[in-house]
Design a protein around this nucleic acid. Structure first.
Lengths: 237, 237
DNA sequence: TCAGATATAGATGTGCACAACAACGCAATA
DNA sequence: TATTGCGTTGTTGTGCACATCTATATCTGA
């Protein structure tokens, strides 16, 4: 036998330090955005390090990154906490996201390749596969996957990076509003199905700018529904 | 005497961990953007830690942040290197910066307060204070300070953060072009003086949108001069 | 009973020693 | 002479013990 490098597992990836970092980062980000860790939750460095089978040192690097992205906040001697999100505070971020969404259709748009078409078909099937009583978390995950897929329609790397950064910072407010009954989940599912269908229709005729405008409109309307949800709740008290 | 907290120095700041981090981060970022560390330079963690009087651990945190901002790149077992910048690669980033500059005049613009007016007066004085043979580094520092001051004209925090992020990632190419004689420094100084004067004129009549458009135009023209500088050099060979 | 100082517990931040890894040089060999 | 293998060296990544800091509970005295 020739010398075989220490492959830790079934196949392929030698699991480099960077890969571990990316995996931990993506997983924690997903948990925060899907409210597995509610805003205000304290994240124990020791517990997370034990879960990932490492020491605190690499994990702290991940938390530092998440702090730079505005998802957690560390205080010396107290703890690391998931940041909170409020509708009114996010108004600035949403206005910016509107403009950036439109830019994805104007700056370096690229038509979908075969792989991306396949991804869109799967996403559409998932969107239409939800029953009358959908699981909010699973649906939020679908929305997230759809957003990431849409980002592949622009070749402008910095724009993509910024859009995703802002998305992950704001998306929790939607799921939070659903749980707080300020949004009607069934209506949200219906609206999302129409958004997917409309955007795919625009993409099929190669009109990426219109696809971006449709996305922009839905981001705007989604935010307005959340704001109205707040005032409705208030006036109903 | 009542108990006095252990003040480490002359006055005020107790120099918390976060303050140290911010200072190290800002200083290294400035050095990279002002080409004190040329692209490709290897940054020694040990040497930098010694310079700041700490161990590698806090310094590594700073380097990790800089890597997230695209200013350095670490490779296990090799070193941490200042990233390189090429005019053609930055085309996407510049197109994005154009759009974002315009947004600063449309999204949450705020007129200058007394302090900001004072800052602008100082900046204008510095701009007109350069002689016939200006120091490129000092002039680049002035441009940087002016940009940061302009960012105070929008109250949209996420927009400000993103604009600065992209600025620090692209600004080195200007100074690099000056050193490579692809840009004429005297002409650049003249152009910058006009930019400052024009923007301040727009601000005095309260037209922040026009100020942003002027800035946008100058970013665009600056990039074009750099591109032309490349082709001119090439055709002159 | 209440105000304030103090001890305690538990968290993040830091320093140091070592592991993992990559580049280089050098020598042995076909 | 070209090439392959290996040891050396220097770097980043990791683990662990300890320092530093904050919030809470407890004790003390009026």
């Amino acid at each position: 036998m020739t010398a075989v490098p220490p492959d830790s597992g079934t196949l392929g990836a030698p699991a480099s330090a960077r890969d571990r970092f990316d995996r931990m980062h993506a997983l924690l980000r997903t948990r925060i955005c899907l409210l597995d860790y509610a805003p205000g939750t304290r994240l124990s460095e020791e517990a997370l390090a034990a879960e990932f089978g490492t020491s605190r040192t690499p994990l702290r690097r991940v938390l530092a990154r998440l702090e730079g992205e505005g998802l957690v906040h560390s205080v010396h001697g107290v703890g690391t906490f998931v940041t909170d999100v409020e509708v009114e505070e996010l108004a600035q971020t949403y206005r910016l996201r509107l403009e950036l969404a439109e830019l994805t259709g104007r700056l370096d748009p690229v038509p979908p390749d075969a792989a991306l078409w396949g991804a869109f078909r799967d996403l559409s099937a998932r969107a239409h596969g939800f029953g009358p009583d959908p699981d909010p978390r699973a649906f939020a995950e679908l929305i997230m996957d759809f957003f990431v897929a849409l980002m592949r329609l622009t070749a402008n790397e910095p724009l993509r990076e910024i859009c995703e950064r802002l998305y992950f910072r704001t998306t929790r407010i939607w799921l939070k509003s659903v749980f707080a009954r300020r949004l009607d989940l069934v209506e949200e599912v219906d609206v999302f199905r129409r958004e997917v269908d409309d955007i795919l229709r625009a993409l099929r005729i190669g009109d990426l700018a219109s696809a971006a405008l449709i996305q922009r409109a839905h981001i705007s309307m989604s935010f307005e529904r959340m704001r109205k949800g707040v005032s409705t709740t208030n006036s109903a008290l």
